[in-house]
């Protein structure tokens, strides 16, 4: 997916470890190009410098970002996340998304939402939501609709079990092609999973033992290579069946 950019200087450190303060791009040498910056990078005059430690990634044609794994989530628009309702006001639900501030979910941000039919959520309800606005200096805004106003899969998650992981692990679980852990587990077991980019994972299955097995496997295989993961999952499944 990622490849070395051919246009500019070869010293660019794509796919390598970068640390805060490292200068990765010189804008004065690339005047007639547009580049898009993702998390962990900032513009400092004529340079693009790094502000978070991680691996620098590049995606064609012009996207740059720093990939890292944390226990906290920094909201960004378009992310699908799992939030917990902590309070209900007349206009908004207040939702905890593991971010620096609590997020607002407008009561009308549901499919066919009107003043007449406002959904009722108890405190502690787990919701699968989308981040719509994430500007600095204000609380992020969430929505339970996709871009065309449909409910899609957004909304409350009933039953099941939720656990917290790092943002890096949730990104791996969502990556395509499907990560080996879920692929191998999915061949033998039937379970439902919802992964939020903010490092929350929700699971549901026919029996609690399957939920426990899947949750433990996901947590244990975080620091393994794909091949190790496959071997581990297969041995676990054999023990169980």
């Amino acid at each position: 997916m990622e490849s070395k950019p051919s246009i500019h200087s070869s010293s660019l450190t794509v796919d390598q470890q970068v640390f805060p303060g490292d200068v990765v791009l010189d804008l004065s040498k690339m005047t007639n190009q547009t580049i898009k910056l993702g998390g962990g990078l900032r513009q400092d005059g004529d340079f693009i410098s790094v502000m978070k430690a991680g691996v620098l990634r590049f995606s064609k044609p012009n996207k740059y970002w720093v990939e890292s794994s944390h226990k906290r989530y920094v909201p960004s628009a378009g992310d699908n996340i799992l939030g917990i309702v902590v309070d209900a006001r007349s206009d908004n639900f207040i939702v905890d998304i593991k971010g620096p501030t609590l997020a607002f979910l407008p009561v009308l941000a549901f499919e066919g939402g009107t003043r007449r039919n406002i959904p009722k959520f108890e405190m502690g309800t787990l919701l699968y939501v989308r981040v719509v606005k994430a500007d600095t200096g204000m609380n992020p805004e969430l929505s339970c609709m996709d871009g065309s106003g449909k409910a899609a899969d957004y909304g409350p998650l009933k039953d099941g079990f939720m656990f917290e992981t790092s943002t890096g692990l949730s990104r791996t679980l969502l990556s395509s092609p499907t990560c080996p852990v879920l692929e191998t587990l999915g061949k033998k077991l039937a379970f439902e999973i919802a992964v939020g980019l903010n490092g929350r994972v929700w699971l549901n299955a026919a029996t609690p033992s399957i939920i426990v097995l899947v949750a433990n496997t996901i947590k244990q295989t975080e620091s393994m290579s794909p091949t190790q993961q496959k071997i581990r999952v297969e041995s676990l499944l054999q023990k169980m069946l």
Binding site: D15, Q17, F19, A53, G54, V55, E67, S68, S69, G168, R171, T172, S175, E222, S223, M224, S225, P226, Q229
Partner: peptide, 17 residues
């Protein structure tokens, strides 16, 4: 400092690449 931090990143991110 960077080397010490890097070795731990590598174990976390090796599979993410």
């Amino acid at each position: 400092l960077k080397k010490k931090m890097q070795s731990q990143f590598a174990s976390n991110l090796s599979k993410a690449g």
